[in-house]
């Protein structure tokens, strides 16, 4: 169970990495934490000509608190995000999602950007980003662009990132006063990818009704779903709106029917848990 032979590239800057991507395009794999790429390489599911190791690009490992968002660099490790006071304060939903991501040992190496770039439909970090209506920062050798997270994920393992683009950062909208967040998932074992997961950020009016809710649903469709509802009446309306048009995935551990049931249970759970 050994990878194919590949050229190893360790650029010193994101610009260099982007230049390499322009050179190799599809035939390169970008290695951040390697928590998914490593196994896929070992299994020879992925057979790149070159591996571009960005795990040491310090310029992509930062947390920056901007006026309306928190920017996390692509190679920020999950463990560092989890222990960050800024993340806990400014992006509490991410802080709640992270303990569900893999395990202590994989969070020590795995990155936020790697998870988003991989685009697993059941992954927690993409779900949190979609829920909060965050933004993905990309760059190629010539220019940078920003893609709303809700448009970034196109299908299972398929994203809007072009082969010559590098994911450089994630923009997480900062928490506002009066907001409540919650995250819940159902996985077969602790640390497994979710069979279904739900996340929300909501504000209530003075009567306790939901004034506005950002809701995310993961693991159910080929990509995480995020939606924003203004003034839904009650939880069941949120459930109905969130599941409208959803065609759930099927696999051996969950039928579509079961996933839909779980999704409804989890949506109720997060809405009730959020304040």
């Amino acid at each position: 169970m050994k990878p194919v032979a590949f050229e190893y590239c360790r650029p010193e800057t994101a610009a260099e990495a982007a230049t390499l991507l322009a050179e190799f395009g599809f035939e390169a794999s970008v290695l951040a934490g390697g928590m998914t790429l490593g196994p896929m390489l070992n299994m020879r599911l992925v057979r790149p000509t070159a591996v571009i190791d960005i795990s040491r690009l310090d310029e992509l490992g930062e947390i920056e608190v901007a006026a309306d968002h928190v920017l996390t660099g692509a190679t920020l490790r999950q463990a560092d995000a989890l222990s960050s006071a800024e993340i806990a304060r400014e992006v509490p939903l991410l802080a709640r999602a992270l303990p569900h991501v893999g395990h202590f040992q994989t969070r020590n190496r795995g990155t936020l950007g790697g998870s988003v770039a991989h685009g697993d439909p059941a992954a927690e970090i993409p779900l949190a980003l979609v829920t909060l209506d965050g933004t993905v920062q990309l760059r190629d050798a010539r220019r940078a662009r920003r893609v709303p997270a809700r448009e970034f994920f196109l299908g299972a393992l398929e994203t809007a990132r072009r082969p010559d683009e590098l994911l450089v950062g994630l923009e997480w909208p900062r928490a506002a006063a009066g907001e409540h967040v919650a995250f819940a998932e159902f996985a077969e074992r602790h640390g497994d990818f979710a069979i279904a997961a739900a996340a929300c950020r909501l504000t209530r009016d003075s009567a306790g009704r939901i004034a506005r809710i950002d809701l995310g649903l993961g693991g159910v469709e080929a990509r995480p779903r995020g939606l924003t509802l203004e003034g839904p009446g009650d939880v069941e309306e949120v459930v109905a709106a969130a599941l409208d048009g959803v065609e759930a995935m099927e696999d051996r551990s969950a039928s579509a029917e079961y996933r839909m049931d779980l999704a409804a249970v989890l949506i109720r759970r997060v809405v009730e848990a959020a304040g």
Partner: peptide, 21 residues
């Protein structure tokens, strides 16, 4: 084959994505 034995969780979604693509 290999994709079925190690990728059960993702196979349906990936197939859907590929055929949609």
């Amino acid at each position: 084959g290999k994709v079925a034995s190690v990728g059960q969780r993702m196979l349906g979604a990936v197939t859907e994505t590929l055929i949609g693509q």
